[in-house]
Write a protein that binds this DNA or RNA. Structure first.
Length: 509
RNA sequence: GAGAGUAUAGCUCAGUCGGUAGAGCACCGCCCUUUUAAGGCGGGUGUCCUGGGUUCGAGUCCCAGUGCUCUCACCA
């Protein structure tokens, strides 16, 4: 196992250098601030004014920058260093006859990762590289561990450095420091969340916060985490969705609310799942499923335009344009008919549906399927979902798997629900919400029966929620979007861990 | 939860038939006043994941364990 923790000799060397500086009264950790006049990118920028000045005037200018040493190339009585700050990289040019013996020796004693401040003037080398000709240099922080900056070749490809997958997640600060692509993706995530907030605020939604510690963890099919409150001597569950508190707020008279928050599901970990992930849910009174579809379409287009600068993306070899509306709508049973060759008439009861599955030779075990709705969703996932590269709303989910969505008036086996798919991934889930307390109670009771039959992810009864509905909730459209998945699609990330700053890892290091 | 792969220097990795540890980068020393994956000369810094076993001898073979990666199951 690779470890940046144990590097005794490296550490000893750096510690000795630090102690030497401290004994000379030059403790870098005693420094509190460094006045900067420029960021690296501002100096490098080809259109910057300082590049047009005559040489003498250019030399008279003063630039003060600070950053990490990422590369050093010493050549006897001169040396080139690269430093990087939040804006980018710039080269430093250092001459012994400018700095004097002591300062030049100090420079040669620098390590990759040292944080320095420099003062000098801007010029371009013979090869045309924008650089700072350094007149003063100050060590601002001395790392005691080797910072694994790799080498960057002519194509900009990073060599060595930090590539071990586990280390990248475990020591994310190093990943951010030495792998620019990793930082770019994670920064985009933050910008996507910010753009989503601005979009929803602009649509008149109010951002609210609801409890993460709950007596009944509902709103989704998942096993919760448990925790304990000492003073109340009571076990609470961590929320698995945002749904039920938000709908209580609709009952309370808020017409448009949303929450962006962390939820926790006690499930396995893989490239698509992290036990804690971020969900955005919104509820809009007096709106139905079709209203929510339009909201999803314009929200995606808005966020993509804001963060990526375009609504057109290449996803799995296909060109996808979020701005091309309306997105496709496809009833689930129709999708299964097209992609699996099982007609809707065959899926009116579990026996005929299973027979049809045997006819086409499904690649999963039929014994485990004990509800018609569950089997239909399974067929959808296996046969239809991988083909949904272009943005598509799958509608008319079976009632057994949709305990919070209104029934279709013309077919009570199906619900007023959609999931939105892009690039074969499920990116949103929406209902015309049940506001009939009698219907809601029956649905929960149906879930309790499934739970009794061994499904420990079936929805629990929530008496207080039904009580809220009994005081009256307007017709309401609701939407849930998994932020992490959405970021994966928008950034092309292959693992959910690449879009979470600190993904959950097994403890023990 | 199941299966497969993998674990050697700070990092990335090689290590043949079982014979006592190797490369590049990083690091240390010397040289070099516009280099850029700078270059030249010299230096190996190691609990070969852990614990057993086979053997005269194990990085290598066997057993068990652990971490990680991938696939599957569950899920968004």
């Amino acid at each position: 196992m690779s470890e940046h923790i144990e590097q005794p000799e490296e550490r000893q060397r750096r510690l000795a250098r630090l102690q030497q500086l401290q004994s000379e009264g030059r403790d870098p950790f005693a420094i509190e601030r460094y006045e900067r006049t420029h960021l690296a990118q501002e100096v490098v920028d080809a259109s910057a004014d300082h590049w047009t000045l005559p040489e003498e005037e250019a030399k008279a200018l003063s630039f003060r920058l600070a950053g990490r040493v990422t590369s050093q190339r010493s050549k006897g009585k001169t040396a080139f260093y690269d430093i990087r700050d939040g804006s980018g990289r710039i080269q430093l040019y250092i001459r012994k006859d400018d700095l004097g013996e002591q300062a030049f020796e100090d420079c040669l004693a620098l390590d990759l990762g040292d944080i320095i401040g420099v003062e000098g003037f801007a010029f371009k080398t013979r090869t045309g590289e924008p650089s700072i000709h350094v007149r003063e240099i100050a060590l601002l922080s001395k790392p005691l561990r080797a910072v694994p900056f790799g080498k960057i070749d002519a194509e900009g490809k990073v060599h060595s450095g930090l590539s071990n997958v586990e280390d990248r997640y475990r020591y994310r600060y190093l990943d951010l420091l030495v792998n620019p692509e990793a930082k770019a993706v994670l920064t985009k995530r933050c910008q996507i969340v910010s753009a989503m907030r601005r979009f929803l605020d602009g649509e008149g939604f109010l951002e609210v916060e609801t409890p993460t510690l709950q007596e009944v963890a509902g709103g989704a099919a998942a096993r919760p985490f448990m925790t304990h409150h000492n003073a109340l001597k009571h076990d609470f569950k961590l929320r698995i969705s945002l749904e039920l508190p938000l709908k209580r707020l609709i009952v309370g008279g808020y017409d448009k609310v949303y929450e962006i928050g962390r939820v926790y599901r006690n499930e396995g970990i893989d490239t698509q799942h992290n036990p804690e992930f971020t969900l955005m849910e919104l509820y809009q009174a007096y709106a139905n499923l079709e209203d929510v579809m339009e909201l999803v379409e314009s929200m995606y287009a808005s966020i993509a335009q804001t963060v990526l600068g375009t609504t057109v993306l290449e996803i799995q070899g296909e060109t996808v344009d979020f701005a091309q509306r309306p997105w496709k709508r496809l009833p689930m049973l129709e999708g299964i008919h097209q992609n699996a060759g099982i007609a809707p008439e065959e899926m009116t009861n579990l026996e005929t549906a299973k027979a049809a599955c045997e006819r086409i030779g499904v690649p999963f075990a039929l014994e485990k399927e004990n509800t018609l709705g569950g089997l239909i969703e399974k067929l959808h996932e296996v046969y239809t979902q991988p083909k949904l590269i272009q943005p598509t709303f799958i509608t008319d989910f079976p009632i057994e798997t949709s305990p919070l969505a209104k029934k279709r008036p013309d077919n009570p086996a199906l619900t007023r629900r959609f999931e939105v798919y892009i690039g074969g991934a499920e990116l949103g889930n929406a209902f015309s919400e049940i506001n009939d307390p009698i219907d809601q109670r029956e649905r929960f009771e149906g879930q309790l029966a499934q739970r009794a039959a061994g499904d420990d992810e079936a929805h629990p009864m929530d008496e207080d929620f039904i009580r809220a509905l009994e005081y009256g909730m307007p017709p309401t459209g609701g939407l849930g979007i998994g932020i992490d998945r959405m970021v994966m699609v928008l950034t092309g990330a292959e693992s959910i861990r690449d879009v979470i700053l600190f993904p959950l890892l097994r403890p023990g290091h």
